[in-house]
Protein backbone atom coordinates (compact mmCIF):
# COMPACT_ATOMS: atom_id res chain seq x y z
CA UNK A 1 0.00 0.00 0.00
CA UNK A 2 1.39 3.45 -0.93
CA UNK A 3 2.67 5.32 2.09
CA UNK A 4 3.95 8.85 2.66
CA UNK A 5 6.26 8.72 5.60
CA UNK A 6 7.47 11.96 7.16
CA UNK A 7 10.28 11.18 9.59
CA UNK A 8 11.48 13.73 12.13
CA UNK A 9 11.43 16.38 9.42
CA UNK A 10 13.22 19.68 10.04
CA UNK A 11 12.85 22.59 7.65
CA UNK A 12 14.43 26.04 7.63
CA UNK A 13 13.94 29.17 5.61
CA UNK A 14 17.39 30.66 5.42
CA UNK A 15 18.82 30.20 8.90
CA UNK A 16 15.46 30.19 10.58
CA UNK A 17 14.12 26.78 11.64
CA UNK A 18 10.40 26.50 10.95
CA UNK A 19 9.55 22.81 11.11
CA UNK A 20 11.36 21.32 14.06
CA UNK A 21 11.10 17.56 13.92
CA UNK A 22 7.77 16.42 12.60
CA UNK A 23 6.78 12.82 12.06
CA UNK A 24 3.64 11.57 10.37
CA UNK A 25 2.70 8.53 8.33
CA UNK A 26 -0.10 8.73 5.79
CA UNK A 27 -1.37 5.61 4.10
CA UNK A 28 -3.30 5.49 0.89
CA UNK A 29 -7.01 6.02 1.48
CA UNK A 30 -6.53 8.08 4.63
CA UNK A 31 -7.39 11.72 5.15
CA UNK A 32 -5.23 13.48 7.72
CA UNK A 33 -5.94 17.02 8.80
CA UNK A 34 -3.26 19.26 10.26
CA UNK A 35 -4.53 22.23 12.20
CA UNK A 36 -2.72 24.92 14.03
CA UNK A 37 -2.34 28.61 14.65
CA UNK A 38 -0.91 30.94 12.01
CA UNK A 39 2.87 30.90 11.63
CA UNK A 40 3.32 27.48 13.08
CA UNK A 41 4.86 25.93 9.95
CA UNK A 42 1.90 24.22 8.27
CA UNK A 43 2.39 25.72 4.81
CA UNK A 44 6.15 25.33 5.12
CA UNK A 45 5.66 21.64 5.74
CA UNK A 46 3.60 21.24 2.57
CA UNK A 47 5.94 23.27 0.36
CA UNK A 48 9.06 21.57 1.73
CA UNK A 49 7.63 18.13 1.01
CA UNK A 50 6.76 19.30 -2.51
CA UNK A 51 10.35 20.50 -3.02
CA UNK A 52 10.10 24.30 -3.09
CA UNK A 53 13.65 25.66 -3.55
CA UNK A 54 13.24 28.32 -0.82
CA UNK A 55 12.98 25.71 1.90
CA UNK A 56 15.97 23.84 3.22
CA UNK A 57 15.59 20.43 4.77
CA UNK A 58 17.97 20.44 7.71
CA UNK A 59 17.12 17.02 9.10
CA UNK A 60 14.87 13.99 8.88
CA UNK A 61 13.46 12.37 5.78
CA UNK A 62 10.36 12.03 3.65
CA UNK A 63 9.73 8.63 2.11
CA UNK A 64 7.27 7.89 -0.64
CA UNK A 65 6.65 4.15 -0.79
CA UNK A 66 9.77 3.61 1.26
CA UNK A 67 12.00 5.71 -0.99
CA UNK A 68 13.39 9.08 0.06
CA UNK A 69 12.21 11.92 -2.16
CA UNK A 70 14.50 14.59 -0.72
CA UNK A 71 17.09 14.29 -3.49
CA UNK A 72 14.43 14.66 -6.16
CA UNK A 73 13.56 17.88 -7.96
CA UNK A 74 10.04 19.16 -7.42
CA UNK A 75 8.92 17.88 -10.81
CA UNK A 76 10.24 14.40 -10.15
CA UNK A 77 8.37 14.31 -6.83
CA UNK A 78 5.25 15.37 -8.67
CA UNK A 79 5.64 12.66 -11.26
CA UNK A 80 6.17 10.14 -8.45
CA UNK A 81 2.64 10.88 -7.29
CA UNK A 82 2.82 13.92 -5.03
CA UNK A 83 0.38 16.77 -5.56
CA UNK A 84 0.29 20.11 -3.79
CA UNK A 85 -2.92 22.11 -3.93
CA UNK A 86 -1.58 25.64 -3.52
CA UNK A 87 -2.94 28.17 -1.13
CA UNK A 88 -2.01 30.88 -3.63
CA UNK A 89 -1.70 29.25 -7.06
CA UNK A 90 0.36 31.12 -9.67
CA UNK A 91 -1.07 32.65 -12.80
CA UNK A 92 0.32 31.37 -16.08
CA UNK A 93 -0.64 34.01 -18.65
CA UNK A 94 -1.52 32.73 -22.10
CA UNK A 95 -1.52 29.05 -21.14
CA UNK A 96 -4.97 27.50 -21.04
CA UNK A 97 -5.90 25.00 -18.36
CA UNK A 98 -6.44 22.40 -21.07
CA UNK A 99 -2.97 22.95 -22.53
CA UNK A 100 -1.35 23.09 -19.13
CA UNK A 101 -2.83 19.80 -18.01
CA UNK A 102 -1.95 18.24 -21.31
CA UNK A 103 1.68 19.34 -20.89
CA UNK A 104 1.69 18.02 -17.31
CA UNK A 105 0.39 14.62 -18.47
CA UNK A 106 2.74 14.61 -21.44
CA UNK A 107 5.64 15.13 -19.01
CA UNK A 108 4.72 11.82 -17.40
CA UNK A 109 5.13 9.88 -20.63
CA UNK A 110 8.33 8.35 -21.94
CA UNK A 111 10.29 9.77 -24.82
CA UNK A 112 8.55 9.36 -28.14
CA UNK A 113 5.18 8.78 -26.52
CA UNK A 114 2.49 11.26 -27.41
CA UNK A 115 -0.80 11.94 -25.67
CA UNK A 116 -3.80 10.94 -27.73
CA UNK A 117 -5.73 14.19 -28.04
CA UNK A 118 -9.16 12.61 -28.39
CA UNK A 119 -8.71 10.36 -25.39
CA UNK A 120 -7.29 13.26 -23.40
CA UNK A 121 -10.27 15.53 -23.99
CA UNK A 122 -12.68 12.69 -23.30
CA UNK A 123 -11.04 12.12 -19.95
CA UNK A 124 -10.82 15.84 -19.18
CA UNK A 125 -14.49 16.38 -19.90
CA UNK A 126 -15.38 13.30 -17.89
CA UNK A 127 -13.58 14.70 -14.84
CA UNK A 128 -15.14 18.10 -15.37
CA UNK A 129 -18.60 16.59 -15.51
CA UNK A 130 -17.88 14.69 -12.32
CA UNK A 131 -16.80 17.90 -10.59
CA UNK A 132 -19.62 19.88 -12.28
CA UNK A 133 -17.21 22.28 -13.95
CA UNK A 134 -18.35 24.20 -17.01
CA UNK A 135 -16.66 23.12 -20.28
CA UNK A 136 -15.61 26.69 -21.05
CA UNK A 137 -13.46 26.76 -17.94
CA UNK A 138 -10.48 24.92 -19.44
CA UNK A 139 -10.05 27.37 -22.31
CA UNK A 140 -9.15 30.10 -19.82
CA UNK A 141 -5.52 30.81 -18.96
CA UNK A 142 -4.40 29.09 -15.75
CA UNK A 143 -5.51 31.19 -12.75
CA UNK A 144 -5.36 34.41 -14.75
CA UNK A 145 -7.91 36.80 -13.30
CA UNK A 146 -9.56 33.96 -11.39
CA UNK A 147 -11.71 34.50 -8.32
CA UNK A 148 -10.76 32.65 -5.15
CA UNK A 149 -13.33 29.98 -5.92
CA UNK A 150 -12.15 29.56 -9.50
CA UNK A 151 -8.59 29.08 -8.34
CA UNK A 152 -9.73 26.30 -6.02
CA UNK A 153 -11.73 24.72 -8.81
CA UNK A 154 -8.66 24.81 -11.03
CA UNK A 155 -6.54 23.10 -8.37
CA UNK A 156 -9.13 20.39 -7.80
CA UNK A 157 -9.46 19.75 -11.53
CA UNK A 158 -5.70 19.37 -11.85
CA UNK A 159 -5.69 16.98 -8.95
CA UNK A 160 -8.45 14.93 -10.55
CA UNK A 161 -6.57 14.74 -13.84
CA UNK A 162 -3.11 14.02 -12.46
CA UNK A 163 -4.40 11.32 -10.09
CA UNK A 164 -1.70 11.65 -7.43
CA UNK A 165 -1.02 9.02 -4.77
CA UNK A 166 -0.85 11.74 -2.15
CA UNK A 167 -2.34 15.20 -2.13
CA UNK A 168 -1.10 17.94 0.18
CA UNK A 169 -3.85 20.51 0.42
CA UNK A 170 -2.71 23.84 1.69
CA UNK A 171 -5.96 25.48 2.76
CA UNK A 172 -4.36 27.50 5.53
CA UNK A 173 -5.91 30.74 4.40
CA UNK A 174 -8.54 31.92 6.80
CA UNK A 175 -10.08 33.81 3.89
CA UNK A 176 -11.69 30.73 2.36
CA UNK A 177 -15.18 31.87 1.47
CA UNK A 178 -18.20 29.58 1.45
CA UNK A 179 -17.93 29.06 -2.31
CA UNK A 180 -14.27 28.06 -2.09
CA UNK A 181 -14.93 25.89 0.92
CA UNK A 182 -17.65 24.03 -0.92
CA UNK A 183 -15.50 23.53 -4.03
CA UNK A 184 -12.55 22.17 -2.07
CA UNK A 185 -14.66 19.87 0.07
CA UNK A 186 -16.80 18.54 -2.76
CA UNK A 187 -13.66 17.97 -4.80
CA UNK A 188 -11.82 16.11 -2.08
CA UNK A 189 -14.88 14.04 -1.25
CA UNK A 190 -15.33 13.13 -4.91
CA UNK A 191 -11.71 12.09 -5.29
CA UNK A 192 -11.38 10.44 -1.95
CA UNK A 193 -10.85 6.70 -2.20
CA UNK A 194 -8.51 3.81 -1.58
CA UNK A 195 -5.96 5.11 -4.10
CA UNK A 196 -5.48 8.54 -2.57
CA UNK A 197 -3.97 9.76 0.66
CA UNK A 198 -4.72 13.35 1.70
CA UNK A 199 -2.93 15.73 4.00
CA UNK A 200 -5.32 18.59 4.61
CA UNK A 201 -3.83 21.70 6.12
CA UNK A 202 -6.26 24.15 7.56
CA UNK A 203 -6.48 26.86 10.14
CA UNK A 204 -10.16 26.53 10.86
CA UNK A 205 -12.22 23.58 11.91
CA UNK A 206 -14.93 24.78 9.51
CA UNK A 207 -13.48 22.90 6.53
CA UNK A 208 -13.61 19.68 8.53
CA UNK A 209 -17.39 19.96 8.73
CA UNK A 210 -17.34 19.22 5.02
CA UNK A 211 -14.38 16.88 4.76
CA UNK A 212 -14.45 14.40 7.58
CA UNK A 213 -10.85 13.40 8.34
CA UNK A 214 -9.69 10.03 9.59
CA UNK A 215 -7.05 11.68 11.73
CA UNK A 216 -6.53 15.15 13.12
CA UNK A 217 -3.16 16.54 14.18
CA UNK A 218 -2.49 19.77 15.93
CA UNK A 219 0.68 21.56 14.93
CA UNK A 220 2.35 24.12 17.09
CA UNK A 221 5.80 25.71 16.78
CA UNK A 222 6.98 23.34 14.07
CA UNK A 223 5.85 20.10 15.67
CA UNK A 224 2.78 17.93 16.00
CA UNK A 225 1.74 18.32 19.59
CA UNK A 226 -1.47 16.36 19.60
CA UNK A 227 -3.10 13.71 17.42
CA UNK A 228 -6.52 12.18 17.50
CA UNK A 229 -9.64 11.51 15.46
CA UNK A 230 -12.17 14.02 14.17
CA UNK A 231 -13.36 14.83 17.68
CA UNK A 232 -10.05 16.54 18.34
CA UNK A 233 -10.99 19.18 15.80
CA UNK A 234 -14.21 19.91 17.63
CA UNK A 235 -12.42 20.07 20.95
CA UNK A 236 -9.94 22.49 19.43
CA UNK A 237 -12.75 24.62 18.05
CA UNK A 238 -14.36 24.79 21.46
CA UNK A 239 -11.23 25.44 23.48
CA UNK A 240 -9.15 27.45 21.00
CA UNK A 241 -5.46 27.18 20.20
CA UNK A 242 -4.47 28.59 23.57
CA UNK A 243 -5.46 25.27 24.97
CA UNK A 244 -2.76 23.60 22.87
CA UNK A 245 -0.17 26.22 23.72
CA UNK A 246 -0.74 25.63 27.38
CA UNK A 247 -0.51 21.89 26.88
CA UNK A 248 2.94 22.20 25.31
Amino acid sequence: MPTLDIQNLQVAIGDKPIVKGLSLTIRSGEVHAIMGPNGTGKSTLAKAIAGHPDYTITGGDVLLDGKSILEMEADERARSGLFLAFQYPSEIPGVTIANFLRAALQARLGEGEEIDATAYYKRLYGKMDMLTIDRKFTSRAVNEGFSGGEKKRCEILQMAMLEPKFALMDETDSGLDIDALRIVSEGVNALRGPGLGVLLITHYQRLLNYIVPDFVHVMYDGRIVKSGDKSLALELEAKGYDWVKKAV
Binding site: P53, D75, P89, I92, A107, Q158
Partner: peptide
Protein backbone atom coordinates in the same frame (compact mmCIF):
# COMPACT_ATOMS: atom_id res chain seq x y z
CA UNK B 1 5.43 30.29 -11.26
CA UNK B 2 8.13 27.81 -12.23
CA UNK B 3 7.68 25.91 -8.97
CA UNK B 4 3.96 25.75 -9.55
CA UNK B 5 4.47 24.19 -12.95
CA UNK B 6 7.19 21.85 -11.71
CA UNK B 7 4.82 20.71 -9.00
CA UNK B 8 2.55 19.50 -11.78
CA UNK B 9 5.36 17.39 -13.20
CA UNK B 10 6.96 19.66 -15.79
CA UNK B 11 10.74 19.94 -15.72
Amino acid sequence: MIFYMQQRGLT
